[in-house]
């Protein structure tokens, strides 16, 4: 479980960092719109929220990868508890 948590949280953290740098170098947070309204947070707040947003999205992708990595055996295991 601990490994899976690391597999989900760590690579997503690294990629979120890269995405954060790339995105906010190109886009000024003060020029963003949120639900049609200009973003009124401070730049620091937008950067921080942005980072956790990226992290969450990347973690979702890592989680999905982990989820699909389960072998057929593991997926079927609960159906034949007494098979072996």
């Amino acid at each position: 479980m601990r490994q899976r948590l690391m597999w989900v949280l760590w690579p997503s953290f690294v990629v979120a960092g890269v995405a954060e740098i790339a995105f906010f170098t190109l886009v000024d947070p003060q020029e963003l719109y949120l639900f049609g309204e200009p973003v009124y947070f401070s730049r620091m707040a937008t950067y921080s929220i942005g980072f956790f947003g990226f992290w969450a999205v990347c973690a979702a992708a890592s989680f999905f990868t982990c989820f699909l990595q389960r072998s057929a055996k593991e997926v079927n295991a609960h159906r034949h508890p007494a098979a072996h």
Partner: peptide, 10 residues
């Protein structure tokens, strides 16, 4: 696993 029979965890 290509084996049709359920293979137990070794």
């Amino acid at each position: 696993m290509s084996s049709p029979n359920p293979v137990p965890h070794t």
